[in-house]
């Protein structure tokens, strides 16, 4: 029982500290903005650990964070191999192919108003569909290895990226477009100097949505068939063996990889769209 009491005691203490920080005059400093969520996250881990130990929850239902950390520490090579297979080979290559294909398609679509009016509604409809369902078909076509995972990722990221880019290419305001006309700019010049830069916030929005989708696509596609390596393969087989600490270890890796991927795209966005109000406000 002492574990449970200790966990709830820690919760109370942490909550009190957070209330104090939030009510204090330094609440808007970067340090406070970092400290409060970190304290909250640590509290969740402590509660988890304390409740699992105190209530003797069996490891096949919910392993404590310490067991997961220990599992991560000892199975580094396996996790690394799975990460390379699923993230680098499957998700990343699919992400690059899908996003660049969608970007080029958007440039073509933008030239023809007829195509834009036809493809945009169809594209936004398809983007709302459960595209993950094409995974079994693509696994059948491209085999069990990472090629089929990359194909699933391509299909998943294509439409969100396409819609965002097409929207972005239209976003330059009419004043600026008129200005380009008065300069007698060719369509190519107007695209390069005005409309592409103006589209960048939308393009990066699409790129950021696609980061999460690519990881989901690569992992779920492995549930339909994979070689004996990969994060999705490890998750589904470890669940079958009730080795839940391994499952949580893979999920931790996936979460960290997903956040870093998203974060790096967001960093590039900050460098490219430094002129946009949303970025200027952050600085």
């Amino acid at each position: 029982m002492s574990w449970v009491a200790g966990a709830f005691g820690f919760w109370g203490l942490a909550w009190w500290i957070n209330l104090r920080i939030a009510a204090s005059r330094q609440a808007n400093t970067p340090a406070a903005r970092l400290a409060v969520p970190v304290i909250f996250g640590v509290t969740l881990l402590v509660l988890w650990e304390g409740l699992v130990r105190g209530l003797n929850v069996p490891g096949v239902i919910l392993p404590p964070p310490s067991a997961i950390a220990a599992r991560i520490a000892v199975s580094g090579p396996i996790l690394w191999a799975d990460f390379m297979q699923t993230f680098v080979k499957g998700a990343l290559s699919g992400y690059v192919i899908g996003c660049s294909a969608a970007f080029l398609t958007a440039l073509a679509v933008d030239r023809f108003d007829f195509l834009r009016r036809g493809l945009l509604p169809v594209g936004s409809f398809i983007a709302a569909l459960p595209i993950i369902g094409t995974a079994p078909i693509l696994v059948m076509w491209f085999g069990f290895d990472w090629h089929s995972k990359a194909a699933v990722v391509v299909v998943m990221v294509f439409f969100p990226m396409l819609i965002n880019t097409v929207e972005g290419l239209r976003s330059a305001d009419s004043m600026s477009r008129d200005l380009m006309r008065t300069y007698a700019a060719t369509p190519g010049q107007s695209l390069r100097k005005l409309r592409l830069p103006a589209a960048m916030p939308f393009v990066f929005n699409g790129l950021k949505i696609a980061t999460t989708l690519s990881l989901i696509g690569a992992i779920v596609a492995e549930f339909f068939g994979s070689p004996t390596v990969g994060m999705g393969f490890r998750i589904s087989t470890s669940v079958g063996q009730l080795a839940l600490d391994m499952v949580w270890a893979e999920i931790t890796v996936a979460a960290v990889a997903g956040s870093l991927f998203y974060g790096s795209i967001a960093l590039i966005e900050r460098a490219v769209t430094f002129w946009h109000p949303s970025q200027r406000a952050a600085n």
Partner: peptide, 30 residues
Amino acid sequence: SRAMDMSVMPWAIASQTIPILAIAPMIIVV
């Protein structure tokens, strides 16, 4: 609640970058 905003909101946003779907098989089996 200001304290709740400061502690929960960053996690809610960060969690959108995580492939949550990966834990589906575990939830079902557990």
